[in-house]
Amino acid sequence: MTLVRWEPFREVNSLQREMNRLFDRLANGDEGDLTNTRTPFIPAAEIYETGDAIQLKVEVPGLEAQDLDVQVSAEAVSIQGERKSETKTEEKGMIRSEFRYGQFQRVIPLPNRVKNEQVEAEFKNGVLTLTLPKVDGEKNKVVKINLG
């Protein structure tokens, strides 16, 4: 059996070199193999709270309302759908075409319980906006902390 000297930072150095190469390619505009990697689509979300409701905005560009499945429970919102994207560019006699397909799902936990049967939804310009009314007991709920 051969003994191998363990160098704990070898993997860290290797990872750092890979990250540097990735950033160099991005900075130089050379996407190379980056377009072939399968990074999952995770829609961006923004959530804020008012006295009576929770507002949730989810950005799903390129999708239509019928492409989305939105389910709301008292504690969370689940959004799933399928993304189909096509890009075609012609430049100096060359044609570049890219397709991106894939299903996605995002579950967003809510800070308070909501009345899921009274949710209002609006879908406009690729942005889904949900207004989630809070359960009455959750409105302006203040809890006293005993510092004993």
Rank of each mutant, 00 (worst) to 15 (best):
D30Q: 10
L68P: 07
R83G: 00
E49G: 00
V77I: 04
A74E: 12
T2R: 13
L110E: 08
N140V: 03
E120P: 02
R21H: 04
P43N: 02
V119H: 05
E18M: 05
V119R: 06
V70T: 07
V72S: 02
F9A: 11
Q16N: 09
P40R: 14
E122H: 11
R83N: 06
D52E: 10
L110C: 11
R106P: 01
R106I: 14
T87Q: 15
A121H: 01
V119N: 05
F99R: 15
V58E: 00
R21C: 02
N116K: 15
E11I: 06
A53Y: 01
D69Y: 11
V143C: 01
I95C: 04
E138A: 10
N20H: 08
Y101V: 15
Q118V: 01
G32V: 00
N116I: 03
T87F: 15
A76L: 02
L132A: 04
I42L: 09
N28Y: 06
R83F: 03
K124M: 07
V142K: 14
R100K: 14
G137W: 09
A76M: 05
A44H: 02
R106C: 04
Q103I: 07
L3Y: 09
N36D: 04
Q66V: 12
E91R: 14
T129Y: 01
K141S: 12
P133D: 03
E122I: 05
P8S: 12
A44D: 06
N116C: 08
Q103P: 09
F99Q: 13
A27P: 01
I95K: 14
I79N: 00
N28S: 14
I145N: 13
P111V: 08
T89P: 01
L3R: 08
D33H: 03
N140P: 01
D24Q: 12
F99D: 09
I54K: 04
T2W: 05
D52T: 05
N140W: 06
I42F: 08
V60H: 04
A45S: 14
E11T: 09
F99E: 12
Q80L: 11
E75W: 08
V77R: 01
N36I: 03
P40L: 12
V114M: 09
Q66I: 06
G29Y: 02
K144Y: 09
I108F: 00
D52V: 00
I95D: 08
Q103L: 10
I79H: 00
E59I: 06
T87M: 15
K115S: 05
R17M: 07
F23H: 15
R25I: 02
I79T: 00
